[in-house]
Each structure stands twice: as C-alpha cells, then as structure tokens.
C-alpha cells in the first residue's frame, strides 16, 4: 500500500515540474525581448529541473543514488546563473535596450 503512495507523490511532483517547464517554454516564446526571455529560461533551470529531480529521489527511495541525484541541482545552482548572466551581459554590451512597457 505504501508503495502506491510513493508513486503518487512522485507523480504529483513530476506534474508540477512539467508544468513549470511548460510555462518556461511558453514564456520563452511569448515574452518581448532577450532580457525577459532569460527569466523564462531561469524558470526551467531552477524550478522545472528541481521538481523533477525531487520526484526521482522520492521514486527511487533513499540510497546512494539519491545523493547523486541531489548533486544535479547543486551544480545547477552554480552554473545556471552564470549562463544567464553571460547572455544578459553580452546583450547589454552589444547595445540591446530592454523593452519598457507592456505592449501585449
């Protein structure tokens, strides 16, 4: 019986992660300029991957494998802001101006 609970929890977490990835991808298309799109990509990086890894940890049970899985978000914490910052800085240096108001 408890087995089913674990499956259910990891299913819910996977669904949440997928929802964040979906909204991130939507934002990547919908938002107006480079700078805003970085936010959407950041959403995928942090919350999307975070929830999916969490779901995998719950599903596999606590073992050495889950420690390995925990290393993935730990490395993402260090690498994902660096890439986001690199894109933003390059866009800024090459003269892109962020769009001001909501034009819809």
């Amino acid at each position: 019986m408890s087995y089913n609970y674990i499956e259910l929890i990891s299913l819910v977490l996977l669904a949440i992660g997928c929802f964040f990835i979906l909204s991130g991808s939507l934002g990547l298309i919908k938002l107006p300029d480079v700078f805003s799109r970085i936010h959407a990509a950041g959403l995928i990086d942090t919350l999307g991957s975070g929830f999916i890894v969490l779901a995998l940890i719950v599903y596999s049970g606590f073992s050495l494998l889950s420690l390995k899985l925990l290393l993935i978000p730990l490395f993402l914490i260090f690498t994902s802001p660096v890439t986001g910052h690199a894109i933003a800085l390059f866009a800024h240096e090459s003269g892109y101006k962020p769009k001001g108001k909501n034009k819809k």
């Binding site: 700078f35 936010h39 950041g42 942090t46 994902s80 802001p81 986001g84 800085l89 800024h92």
Partner: peptide, 15 residues
C-alpha cells in the same frame, strides 16, 4: 549575491 539574484526567476543581474 549576484548569483542569488539571477537564480531567483524574474530577476537577472546584468552588470
């Protein structure tokens, strides 16, 4: 601090 700002969705440190 700069990384933490970038890491939270919705805010990006540019410079």
């Amino acid at each position: 601090y700069a990384n933490a700002i970038t890491l939270t969705p919705g805010t990006v440190t540019i410079e």
